[in-house]
Design a protein around this nucleic acid. Sequence first.
DNA 1: GGCGTGATAGCAAGCGCTTTCTATCGGGTA
DNA 2: TACCCGATAGAAAGCGCTTGCTATCACGCC
Lengths: 348, 348
Amino acid sequence: MTVTLADVAARAQVSPATVSRVLNGNYPVAAATRERVLKAVDELEYVLNGPASALAAATSDLVGILVNDIADPFFGIMASAIQSEIGGPGGRAGGERLAVVCNTGGSPERELTYLTLLQRQRAAAVVLTGGALEDAPHRAAVSAKLRKLAEAGTRVVLCGRPPAPGTGAIALTFDNRGGGRELTEHLIGLGHRRLGYIAGPQERTTTRHRLEGHRAALAAHGVEEDPRWTVYGRYDRRSGYEATLELLRRDPALTAVVAANDSVALGACAALRESGLRIPDDVSVAGFDDLPFSIDVVPALTTVRLPLAEAGARAGRIARGREDAPPGGIATVRGELMVRGSSGQPRE
Amino acid sequence: MTVTLADVAARAQVSPATVSRVLNGNYPVAAATRERVLKAVDELEYVLNGPASALAAATSDLVGILVNDIADPFFGIMASAIQSEIGGPGGRAGGERLAVVCNTGGSPERELTYLTLLQRQRAAAVVLTGGALEDAPHRAAVSAKLRKLAEAGTRVVLCGRPPAPGTGAIALTFDNRGGGRELTEHLIGLGHRRLGYIAGPQERTTTRHRLEGHRAALAAHGVEEDPRWTVYGRYDRRSGYEATLELLRRDPALTAVVAANDSVALGACAALRESGLRIPDDVSVAGFDDLPFSIDVVPALTTVRLPLAEAGARAGRIARGREDAPPGGIATVRGELMVRGSSGQPRE
DNA sequence: GGCGTGATAGCAAGCGCTTTCTATCGGGTA
DNA sequence: TACCCGATAGAAAGCGCTTGCTATCACGCC
């Protein structure tokens, strides 16, 4: 039926052990023998049985990438970068690895279940991307899982996610707080004093950190902060649209809107325009992440650039074991303020 | 070290066979026994060894989803829909399946390598999404792989991709040609006679089919077609921006721009606006796909809605074996013309 | 009272590969 | 010439699970 190692061995007139060694390349095999084996592999169109190999070797070549929302470019870009470093194809040189992305949809249960599934597959590594849920029980459950994975030899890397102390996970954390602060300081510097803020979902670390940065900036400069100026929503365009309308309803005198991310900012722009307000003449808008489209919209978005691809690539290399973990297992990745056309001085 | 089936069996005072049967639930086990086993599983925090199980049972619970560009919502939406039907978590009821998305980045080699990797893992099913490359050798190679996968018992489903005859793959194909035609007919109906077309990458089926639809509409209505009015590019916003500028350079008198997809259309809008042209007063714009943002931009995009999520869900169910394949193994999914603000009558 | 029966549980043989340990062979060395 | 050694190749013991077949047991019927 299906071709096995033994078939190849028979054809190449060697033992199965030798074939295995040729395929894994971690044991000396005479050149002539190797040739013969490779030829047989080719002729028979032999494909290694992954499960069998994983069982015998007690490791697999699967690497899991967990994302909150696969349809969001924020995750897409990271996943793509991680994946290309991991290998899949492209990583060349023997150690083919199957990088797979798992979409949790932001659901805690799915996150946990995927982790279990990956544990079951004896994954070589797992990369968790994006913000984490703030819920304590869930956090503990995830930590426990991560610890168990690490114990079983799975490398665990967090990319754009806060550290998980005691789990042995390597963390590449985004400085959301710092970025948020810098962004708002820019606006304050331009003269804005009435700033609306459209936050992400309440219970996420990313949401909280960015908002904290915003508030820190306000506090540091003695700018008033009105709870009515903050609206929570989702990380998407529609949410930004609706939240902006709400903000305008609550206080038509706002001169700036800071959004949780670029998609939200885009929605905000649409809402403002529809309300007859010009950007940035009447209202300034700022985003976060600097997704590709942000420089491309009109006016171009003032935002905080997060090196998504770079961070993802680094996470991928660490997961793959091709790069050392940062000292202490934690590295903070800073954002960079990008001042563009969507922010300007407030009207008189 | 790690807990095995045997450990659970010992603890529950039953044979490994019984534990296995409890876990797989496909063989009668007395309720009391089952309880005991489940308790032991729990106490020991036992996690099934996936590879071992896959080896013994000669099947795995992995389902692969191949996408061209994971950072593009077009694929994100489909992948997400497929994944939620496949199971991963959420699919409940025993048969947990690990749906994994593999990002080919549009590269033929990666596509093939991923298929091999999935074959190696003895994947339960594979779903290929989006347009295929037109390159004959590659096409043949993919077909051969798909046939082999099917022979090995892997269910193969194509979602939004043309059929692959002789491979046993089920195809859910988008009617790109029909959609393209309808869209252009709408524009012609409004009175447009000078229509620019921004196509996707040359060698993709999606690109060709949409363009063919466009041309068919022109031909059917006796509208002139100038080769200078067609520009090829990528499926992204930037490409639309650049192509539009090029189109304008070639013929400033165009009254409509039809884009290969919504992202491209967005870029086109930006370019037109920057060139001082109003939409749709000076130039009409049309997209394709009807991605979520399309209704949300200003003006809202006239486009062809593709039921991405529905098609993905259906593909997922078929891959999972929860829905029968369409008669003949091929179903055509039609798009729906969405007329919105970005298209209007041409100027005098 | 002997047995056919249905319902459960256990035995044991693999699934296809990896890897430790051992065997073999051709020299180089004393 | 007798030995030792490095370089290769093979034998075989699993890795942890599934499953076909067999054993056991308690009934209920003839």
